[in-house]
Amino acid sequence: MIYQRDTMAYDKPLPVIDNESRPFWDGCREGKLMLQHCAECGAWVFYPRVLCTACHSERLEWEEASGEGVIHSFTICHRPAGPAFAGETPYVVALIDLKEGPRMMSNIVGADPESVRIGQSVRVTFEKATEEVTLPKFKVIS
């Protein structure tokens, strides 16, 4: 399910989607967390790139990830990253160890920031920012 933000106009920084990352953002729009998976050595790769970081193979295939992970670390931002985030404070920026292996940055949403802990299990959820961009965020499930 994709959560539609009720803001009038989205004014936070947005990714400029390039050819390497397009399938990732296309997946997010469809509510799928897509990761690159190396057909030669089996490594999972994030963020999107042209060669496998482990074996330099070009055969990186897009696969849907489980969307599950564990919080490796986080910070609670009491001061915003520019005026566009002013209405969000305090917000949590976390590093999530995805079940498949890669570590990904995102926000933890739907929880009191002070209740967030390292080691908590999380699952991806999607927030539509604009017609083109939907951001993967995470909810605590344990």
Partner: peptide, 27 residues
């Protein structure tokens, strides 16, 4: 604008040095 290495960070409000380093400190 958000490009290159910031594609997967800036959108989440990860920008100032303190924000960039705090996960390391917390861990």
């Amino acid at each position: 604008p958000v490009t290159g290495d910031q594609l997967h960070s800036r959108a989440y409000g990860w920008q100032a040095a303190g924000q960039m380093f705090s996960q390391t400190f917390m861990r």
